[in-house]
């Protein structure tokens, strides 16, 4: 069925105008959609997490992403990856000494047992480590702050001017093999990880408590959107998630 009226030239002209209108409208709609999506992407704040937990990064990332809708969660396993990601972060969650080393201040502090610090210990086979021997032992430690930063961190924890020889590992689960292979005299870890480590091993693991405590995880915000969106989500994390992060609650 053909519409009546008009000569072919007029119809062609009208059709050309309709086509132009369609493309202009499509482009406008497209531009609007594009801007909205870009705006949405920019509004989705990014939380960068760097914590040495027994949970794999993949699992921790999925757990946090479920609990923090509208937030992009990135879990880093290495200090260098964390420092690279910081440039693009709206918020960062890490042990407070790690935040401080990157000129950040913890706006939200993690608490456990009502305190914002936790004790660290040395774990060794057979006997505890006498404090007089601290400077001469070979010590296994997680590479928490890069080679130099971790060396200083360890020296502070042991109350020494200079750190003993350190065998760095990426994950806390790699500390036990250092003892099994007798590559280290002792390993350094938070006291809360002792029970689990001992449950894995049949070695006669002995604990040497250290006097200096270390600040628990904290969250620093790098943007208003980070503070506005991420802060309430962190405060609302459930107890299971907090437990995996090594805290009871946030303040």
């Amino acid at each position: 069925m053909r519409r009546s009226g008009g000569d072919p030239a007029q119809r062609a002209a009208a059709s050309a105008i309709a086509r132009r209108r369609f493309w202009v409208t499509a482009l406008l709609v497209g531009a609007l959609l594009f801007s909205a999506l870009v705006a949405f992407a920019q509004e989705r704040p990014r939380l960068v997490v760097y914590l040495h937990t027994e949970v794999k990064s993949r699992a921790l990332e999925a757990l946090l992403a479920r609990q923090m809708p509208g937030t992009e969660v990135i879990v880093c396993g290495r200090y260098r990856d964390f420092t690279r990601e910081l440039a693009k972060a709206d918020a960062a969650m890490a042990l407070e000494p790690v935040l401080q080393a990157n000129a950040l201040t913890g706006d939200l502090k993690g608490l456990r047992g009502g305190r914002d610090t936790e004790p660290y210990v040395l774990l060794s086979i057979g006997t505890t480590i006498d404090a007089a021997r601290f400077s001469t032992i070979v010590l296994g430690a997680v590479d928490l702050l890069g080679r130099d930063g971790t060396t200083q961190f360890v020296a502070n924890l042991l109350g020494l001017e200079a750190s003993p020889e350190i065998k760095f590992v990426i994950k806390s689960e790699d500390l036990l093999p250092l003892l099994q292979f007798q590559s280290a005299d002792a390993v350094l870890l938070p006291e809360r990880e002792v029970v689990r480590t001992k449950s894995l091993s049949k070695l006669d693991l002995q604990i040497t408590p250290l006097a200096t405590r270390v600040r628990l995880p904290a969250v620093a915000f790098g943007s208003d959107v980070g503070r506005r969106v991420i802060r309430p989500l962190v405060l609302a994390l459930d107890s299971e998630t907090n437990g995996k992060l090594g805290v009871d609650t946030w303040r």
Partner: peptide, 19 residues
């Protein structure tokens, strides 16, 4: 086409590839 472009932009800007 627009949807593909938008998804591509989102992915490039924020997705796993970026990290």
């Amino acid at each position: 086409l627009l949807l593909i472009c938008a998804v591509a932009v989102l992915t490039c800007a924020r997705g796993p590839a970026a990290r």
